[in-house]
């Protein structure tokens, strides 16, 4: 859910805006290394894809449903820098063309739901990947765990920002308990859907999954012979 205008005070909003601009500038440079001159069309299409998937609702129970935040899965599918760039552009377009998320809260949204989810999702994914066996079957599992972790960490980061620049005196321990509790549940959903979705891409086009590259490079050519039919 996007942070609107007025949730955090003006100095905090400006500070998160400056930090977010720095993060986006870095990812612009780094994404070129991931994609070279294909950066513009591919990151643009990935951004359109992330925007569209936020319309894909996964039913939970009793008529409620949710959609992916998508930072972690974007990092696994297209690499952390391109993923970050694409999510940042999604927030920019949502803020300017769809009135979703305040323009003064743009930096906060890019940092929390973009940078934090991408960084945590990718970091945990890589860490889990080093522990698990190096097979393509393990990539969706690592991605799911990374996505699960990314959501509560983002909510903790939000509480941290709120402690600095919040506009109401909510007891911080209550806010932390409520936010982390709710987001642990959301994280379980994010983790399961990410696991399923990455699995479905790996099954068809493993070469497209950025997070599977190391596994694919390590894979050796197998020649399987079958007995000719009699």
């Amino acid at each position: 859910m996007h942070v609107p205008d007025g949730f955090l005070d003006a100095p905090t909003s400006v500070a998160t805006g400056v930090v977010a601009a720095g993060v986006v500038a870095t990812s612009l440079r780094k994404a070129r290394a991931e994609l070279d001159d294909r950066t513009a069309p591919l990151a643009g299409l990935v951004a359109a894809f992330i925007f569209a998937t936020q319309m894909l609702n996964f039913p939970v129970a009793g008529g409620t449903s949710g959609h992916l935040m998508g930072g972690a899965i974007a990092a696994v599918l297209v690499g952390p820098w391109t993923g970050l760039l694409a999510t940042a552009v999604v927030f920019l377009v949502q803020s300017l063309l769809f009135a979703d998320g305040g323009i003064t809260a743009l930096g906060t949204n890019v940092l929390l739901m973009g940078a934090v989810t991408v960084a945590v999702g990718w970091g945990v994914f890589r860490a889990v990947q080093t522990v698990l066996p190096k097979t393509t079957a393990m990539v969706p599992i690592a991605a799911g765990i990374g996505a699960f972790a990314s959501v509560p960490v983002a909510s903790v980061a939000f509480v941290g920002l709120y402690a600095v620049g919040g506009t109401a005196d909510i007891p911080l321990d209550n806010l932390t308990t409520a936010m982390v509790g709710v987001h642990l549940l959301i994280g379980v959903g994010e983790g399961i859907i990410t696991f399923l979705a990455v699995g479905s891409v790996i099954a068809v086009r493993p070469d497209l999954v950025h997070g599977a590259r190391r596994v694919l490079e390590a894979r050796e050519l197998e020649v399987r012979t079958t007995r000719a039919a009699a």
Binding site: L42, F49, L56, G199, S200, L208
Partner: peptide, 19 residues
């Protein structure tokens, strides 16, 4: 989730074709 995966592949491949 399979629709999600298919949409990703189609979007990414469209990006490659556009490039």
């Amino acid at each position: 989730a399979r629709s999600f995966g298919a949409l990703f592949i189609r979007s990414f491949e469209r990006g490659e074709r556009v490039h």
